[in-house]
């Protein structure tokens, strides 16, 4: 199994006033192609800092980070932007869709920053991505016409459209109720198992972590536990086992 992520002794320090805050104190782990890992940790554990580094939004103070075989240290701002565009698909807690813009146009957005893709191909790939997240009938809907779960599925389609090597989800179920969360996780599992997408999912909910193949626990800027999930749950089954209430 080839490695998508190789992280070795990653450190990140911030200067806040006169104090130096050490958010990451030497984190090392690898992620292989097709893995579905969750990164867990309490607030202050360095989770967000790690996520920013993994997402090429931030550079580590020291240590190495290889994404798809490329050392991020050697890249400048523009190259980092291009890397984010082609290698990473972001999914955010608050969806971050453009308001008053159709689902299709939202999904097309990353492709607009990729000069090698023409108008026709852009449209085709956006349609495919929306079909992959089962929103084929919602192309023209704007975010305010979509439910939270649907909005997050549009965001996932946007993350998929550039065919990234890794999907990076930041508390992607944090704003959703249990049922919708499970639906999203079921979609994630499908992308992972059927389309063999590598997924790194940051969360603090243990039940979400149980759907992934491996869990990394962060604590005080260090990896506390890095365990494969022996007892992988199916989100589809979990969804079906939820009590059906009249509320829905």
């Amino acid at each position: 199994m080839s490695k998508i992520l190789e992280i070795h002794d990653l450190k990140r320090e911030f200067k806040v006033g006169s104090e130096i805050v050490r958010a990451l104190k030497g984190v090392s782990f690898d992620v292989g192609t097709g893995e579905f890992i969750t990164i867990m940790g309490t607030s202050g554990s360095g989770k967000s800092t790690l996520l920013n580094v993994l997402g090429c939004l931030d550079k580590p103070s020291s240590g190495t980070y290889l994404l798809d075989g490329v050392d991020l240290k050697s890249l400048n701002r523009n190259q980092l932007a291009q890397f984010r565009n082609t290698k990473i698909g972001f999914v955010f807690q608050a969806y971050n869709l453009l308001p008053r813009t159709s689902a299709l146009e939202n999904v097309e957005l990353p492709l607009l920053y990729n000069p090698s893709i023409n108008t026709k191909e852009r449209r085709e790939r956006a349609i495919q991505a929306l079909e992959a997240v089962k929103l084929a009938d919602r192309f023209d809907h704007t975010p305010n016409q979509l439910s939270g779960g649907q909005q997050q599925r549009v965001a996932i389609a946007r993350a998929l459209v550039n065919e990234p090597v890794m999907i990076l989800a930041d508390e992607a179920t944090g704003n959703l109720d249990t049922r919708t969360s499970y639906e999203i996780m079921s979609l994630m599992q499908e992308l992972n198992q059927v389309q063999k997408k590598t997924i790194v999912f940051v969360t603090h909910e243990p039940d979400i972590a149980s759907f992934s193949s491996r869990t990394i626990m962060l604590r005080d800027g260090k990896v506390q536990k890095d365990t494969p999930n022996e007892n992988l749950q199916s989100a589809r089954e979990a969804l079906n086992s939820l009590p059906v209430t009249e509320d829905y």
């Binding site: 932007a81 291009q82 971050n96």
Partner: peptide, 16 residues
Amino acid sequence: TREIGLRMSIGARPVD
């Protein structure tokens, strides 16, 4: 601001 952050995170360069 959030839109700008989003655009940057999905690959917009500062010059874009």
